[in-house]
Write a protein that binds this DNA or RNA. Structure first.
Length: 856
RNA sequence: GCGGAAGUGGCGAAAUUGGCAGACGCACUAGCCUUAGGAGCUAGCGGAGCAAUCCAUGGGGGUUCAAGUCCCCCCUUCCGCACCA
């Protein structure tokens, strides 16, 4: 809308800019047009330009159609950093793309009768406009959209490469099924037994043939690599460590007594094989094969096991699995402990997890809290086999720590045959060796991490490039036939099973090996495949020969700074690390890890809760931008809290930032002619006290902000510092008017103010840069360098304390010697009144900091 | 239960190495201005007190000339993991 169209106000001359009034809508629209027309403005230079590089990356959004405040905050942080690094002379890559496959598009298709592709591409167009309106410095020439064939063909290409290397495989297995999504989910997508998208929908277990990526092959490297990522938050590293869940222990075979179904070998997994002489029972998961075999022989047992499973299911549905009481049933059978030949009862217990370890444990009540609790409940034997070192010889039980005693440091084995007297760790090694020699056990490492199930029974995803031939079985699609195109105009169903199965033209194909009839795989890939490597595509987005050129990756990777929400700590960030290692082993890249530094920003909350439609506390970025402008909106997102903390959105705060920008505009425009007449001949003129004070404030501000950009990122205090500088300018307005501040100094301060503002309020900075007569873009102008001499105070305030309490403040020349400071303190009337008649026991003078007089 | 982060005015917050607690902003109060604006300007704004002064960074101890900051114990909130053998 042009100003003259605005209702109710006769303002015929508004087209002639009012240079005292800040009008962000007008300024921002004008600069957006200029920037949109300049494809080179935010383009990185080629990889062989010889300049140091900086790859600044924000997590790509799902194109829902609407940016939310979390995005605004994420991108405001990344944009400030990218712009700053450009001004510091780096060759900056700052790209953006779209995580465009996924279920919401199918749901929207069903609801609105639109094709997922149409819906998705329209959303992308809308969100791109929102981003441009925000003034984000993305190079749109490198844009990546994961649902387009020129991207997803490389997902297929990687799939084939991984299949060749045995990293992609198909197997029948128990998988997580979300009835709401009507598809399988990866373990990482199941949270508290529910779907990650449908928090109230319980995930079912189904047995299906599925494609998996062998992420477990890299489990150890994914784990040890975390120690080499000091630039990642400790929290994320800890979460990944827990998720990988490495556990070193021992497998031991217990052999059951003979029954109708014969002798069974029960392999247990334990991390404390040193306690095995204290094992007083063997515990099986209800789902364990041996449990099933015993149940066949024993109807009563079968009924009890069924009840146990039913109880578990009910608890899981009620959401309180984990709080259910430990409970078990004796099978009536016994097993032999291979270490001492002891005969121990076999139980089935509800707390034994079928899918961890071997689904069977040895129970050592004396040295495990859960086993202790269980043994007490059922009256099972409790036998101490570990004692505190030094107390082991003492017969008296009272000399020993209470049971259960679970420590293994400073503890030794007792009553453990030939192993008695050994300390725990040494005993574990010896016992493993013995078990291996005698072939009833071995050392073993288990992981909580499971292989990544990537098959999805959905339409809107990357087709898996495999066919099934009647004679040749599973046959990969040849590389030169890629991409396997996702058919268009497909009827979306939510009946279970991929909608692609109902598209005969897609399904029916020929076998690449024999030319005979064959059927295509109709499942599509998990969308986390798309986002596992998208940031490699940015560096070579148009390459039709390869996913990306190796030499470009060698220059740009690893990412220097990755910025996003902590909600991706496990899913996306562990898959991305895995993919990088796979690509390295395929010879595509040199780096072991995708990103050197990771930053997880806090949530945007309002009224104490995360913004969400259901809570009705959502603030729309469009509305904020329309009301206050993009500069004020993004600057508020940086000003209201440090970026790693949660941010409480307060609209009055945005208004406050907007008022600040108005003041910047007003005073800069007022002195623009002065700046204009001096900018070409930069001179520092600190001749008068007034100009000296201004220049001092300026250089202190430059120093502060430059330091913060180097890592601390407390942009809230950076903006506060700029506000202080502007407050100083306003206070000096009269002095600048009167010429008390020389024009050169005025020009110097304003010129640098605009440079400091550029990363935070780019539209206003561009406008003022031009209005003050500067040519070229402010965003490629060198970042100012703080002059320590100009920044130095010549007189400083020294607080004087008596007995640690502040009494007064004295002014002394900066750099004064200790006794000068002390004398000044003693000369102060308030201080001397306190000291009067008392004895000074001690005088503490910290040069430049304070004086403390300790009186008796 | 385990792991992580945090707790400072009415609110968002600041205090980078232990050295003037509350910068900067919001809200509020009083006054000014009038092109009546979601504007601008001046002053005030942790608590108690007329004041001098005293009290105050979740609570309690400690170290120190000096503690929001370091150490010990406890409380609360948020986030993650949770029968992992």
């Amino acid at each position: 809308m042009s100003p003259s169209q605005q209702s109710g106000k006769a303002a015929p001359n508004n087209d002639n800019q009012d240079t005292t009034r800040y009008t962000p809508a007008e300024i921002e629209a004008r600069w957006q047009t200029v920037w949109d027309a300049d494809a080179q403005l935010y383009a990185a230079e080629p990889h062989d330009c010889g300049k140091p590089k900086f790859y600044c990356l924000e997590m790509l959004p799902y194109p829902s159609g609407q940016l939310h405040m979390g995005h605004v905050r994420n991108y405001a942080i990344g944009d400030a950093l990218a712009r700053h690094m450009w001004m510091r002379g780096y060759n900056v890559l700052h790209p953006m793309g779209w995580d465009a496959f996924g279920l919401p598009a199918e749901n929207a298709a069903l609801k609105n009768n639109r094709q997922p592709e149409e819906w998705t591409l329209a959303n992308i167009a809308a969100m791109r406009v929102q981003m441009q309106r925000m003034g984000l410095s993305y190079d749109w020439a490198t844009e990546v959209t994961t649902c387009l064939p020129d991207y997803y063909r490389w997902n297929q290409w990687f799939f084939l490469k991984m299949y060749e290397k045995g990293l992609a495989y198909r197997k029948q297995s128990k998988v997580n099924w979300c009835p709401e999504c009507a598809t399988v989910l990866a373990n990482e997508q199941v949270i508290d037994g529910c779907c990650w998208r449908h928090e109230d929908t319980l995930v079912e277990q189904r047995n299906l043939e599925q494609w998996f990526f062998r992420i477990t092959q890299y489990a150890d490297e994914l784990l040890s690599g975390l120690d080499k990522l000091p630039g990642w938050p400790e929290k994320v590293r800890t979460m990944q460590r827990n998720w990988i869940g490495r556990s070193d222990g021992t497998l031991v075979d217990f052999t059951s007594e003979s029954g109708e179904t014969g002798v069974h070998v029960i392999t247990v997994f334990t991390t404390r094989v040193d306690t095995i002489f204290g094992a007083t029972s063997v515990q099986l998961a209800p789902e364990h094969a041996v449990t099933k075999a015993f149940a066949k022989e024993d109807k009563k047992l079968a009924a009890e096991v069924d009840a146990m499973l039913a109880q578990q299911k009910a608890a899981r549905e009620a959401g309180d699995i984990g709080t259910i009481e430990k409970h078990g049933v004796f099978t009536g059978k016994y097993a032999i402990n291979p270490f001492n030949g002891e005969r121990v009862p076999i139980w089935v217990a509800n707390y034994i997890l079928a899918d961890y370890g071997t689904g069977a444990i040895m129970s050592v009540p004396a040295h495990d809290e859960r086993d202790f609790e269980f043994a007490q409940k059922y009256g099972l034997a409790i036998k101490r086999v570990i004692a505190k070192r030094g107390a082991a010889e003492q017969e008296d039980e009272k000399a020993q720590p209470a049971l259960p005693f679970t420590e293994e440091d400073d503890a030794v084995l007792v009553d453990s045959g030939e192993f008695s007297g050994l300390d725990c760790v040494a005993a574990q090694k010896k016992m493993q060796t013995l078990a291996e020699q005698k072939k009833f056990g071995k050392a073993n490492t288990t992981y909580r991490l499971k292989d990544w199930g990537v098959s999805r029974q959905r339409y809107w995803g990357t087709p898996i490039p495999m066919v099934y031939c009647e004679t040749h079985g599973i046959v990969p699609v040849p590389e030169d036939e890629l991409p396997v195109l996702l058919p268009k105009q497909v009827q979306i169903t939510q009946q279970g099973g991929s909608p692609l199965a109902n598209v005969p033209e897609f399904v029916n194909t020929t076998c690449p090996k024999c030319g005979g009839p064959a059927k295509r795989e109709t499942d599509t890939m998990d969308t986390f495949v798309d986002s596992s490597w998208y940031f490699y595509r940015y560096i070579d987005a148009k390459n039709s020969e390869r996913p990306f050129a190796k030499e470009k990756a060698a220059y740009w990777f690893p990412i220097d700074q990755y910025i996003g929400g902590v909600e991706h700590a496990i899913l996306h960030l562990i898959y991305s690390r895995y993919w990088t290692k796979v690509m390295r082993d395929l010879g595509l890249t040199m780096n072991d890890e995708p990103a050197t530094r990771l930053f997880t920003q806090g949530m945007v909350i309002r009224n104490g809760a995360k913004m969400s439609k259901s809570k009705g506390n959502v603030v729309s970025p469009d509305e904020m931008i329309a009301r206050y402008g993009a500069d004020a909106t993004r600057m508020y997102a940086l000003f209201a809290a440090p970026p790693d903390r949660d941010l409480e959105w307060q609209e009055d705060g945005v208004a406050g930032v907007s008022r600040f920008l108005s003041r910047v505009y007003r005073i800069t425009m007022k002195f623009a002619p002065v700046v204009k007449s001096h900018y070409a001949k930069p001179q520092i003129n600190a001749a008068t006290p007034a100009s000296q004070a201004l220049l001092r404030k300026l250089h202190q501000t430059i120093a502060k902000i430059t330091l913060d950009f180097s890592g601390r990122w407390h942009f809230n205090t950076c903006i506060a510092a700029i506000m202080e500088l502007v407050n100083a300018l306003m206070a000096a307005e009269g002095a600048m008017d009167s010429g008390e501040v020389p024009e050169q100094a005025v020009a110097e301060v304003f010129r640098n103010l605009i440079l400091l503002l550029a990363p935070f309020a780019p539209f206003l900075a561009a406008e003022l840069w031009q209005q003050t007569g500067h040519e070229g873009t402010v965003f490629r102008t060198a970042w100012p360098v703080a002059d320590a001499e100009l920044a130095a105070e010549d007189e400083i305030e020294i607080p004087v304390q008596v007995n640690g309490k502040l009494v007064n403040v004295v002014r002394v020349p900066a750099g004064s010697a200790e006794d000068v400071v002390k004398d000044a303190a003693m000369a102060d009337a308030k201080v001397s009144a306190r000291v009067e008649g008392k004895q000074i026991v001690k005088t503490v003078v910290v040069p430049g900091k304070l004086v403390n007089l300790v009186l008796k």
